[in-house]
Design a protein around this nucleic acid. Structure first.
Lengths: 138, 138
DNA sequence: TTGCGTGCAAAGGTTTTGCATGGCA
DNA sequence: TGCCATGCAAAACCTTTGCACGCAA
């Protein structure tokens, strides 16, 4: 699976530190360089590609954001029994630990002949923090 | 809400004809021009932006696809009671008419304090057609 | 030593912007 | 007529590729 280098270690380390966030390639590039860790953009892209191919990270393309976002695939070890709830206001990603996802998957499989991929699926909406503030926009 | 022009009419018309598909800006550009309707890329982008701002179309950014995809927001008039199931193999979008979505929304609201936006949410997975063919890839 | 990893520069692809012109209301 | 829409060209982004060099195993 390739060599381990200073750069590949630092990228994983950065993802680890930001388990709860979605990071773009450019954000990782900036975080590392601002910490004094010299790394090139190309390297960040190539490492993320490998991590994605090996399903170490998940990749998201969000509306209103032209660049892809990455996040460690198993921040808590059991994402198969999680919802991923993404707040469209503040951008927070919630891993909702809950068996209801299994019910959902089973229902969709039985009634709609469709196998849901819980890893790839993100439910969009508004988190509790943002519910009160919503009409401040516009 | 702006003027109605030949171009804006043709774009809406194209989206209408392709209710069941996701189209990129470039696909719309190519479809129209191949039908002999002269239109510029810039116009397609700007019209889609307006339609998106007015929630006439939905916009998706899919993994493995660098460009955004658009689709009429209300292909059947009742998307609030629909799932949107996107097959990651063949790309088909299924509108699964089903009340289970309401149960899901209520559960997530009660137990996780999160309001799911069924319009924006797409469940990814594998459709029944592709289930049998899956290992042909790779 | 071998061959993968790195990073610069450049290319490729998508989307946005500036500006002069054209067309709707 | 006034103002928005159009479309070309160019810029702005994000991501990938080519290539020479460096470093892990």
């Amino acid at each position: 699976m390739g060599y381990t280098t200073k750069q590949s270690r630092e990228i994983l380390n950065c993802l680890e530190k930001n388990k709860n966030r979605h990071l773009t390639a450019d954000e990782i590039y900036n975080i590392l360089n601002s910490e004094g860790i010299s790394i090139g953009r190309t390297t960040v892209y190539r490492q993320l590609e490998k991590l994605y191919d090996n399903t170490v990270v998940r990749r998201f393309k969000l509306d209103g954001n032209t660049s892809a976002c990455y996040q460690l695939a198993q921040p808590c070890g059991e994402c198969h029994s999680h919802y991923h709830l993404k707040c469209t206001v503040c951008g927070k990603l919630v891993h909702a630990q809950c068996d209801f996802l299994n019910e959902l998957s089973q229902h969709i499989f039985k009634d709609h002949n469709f196998i849901v991929d819980g890893e790839k699926t993100v439910l969009y909406g508004i988190c509790e923090n943002c519910l009160g503030k919503e009409r401040h926009d516009d």
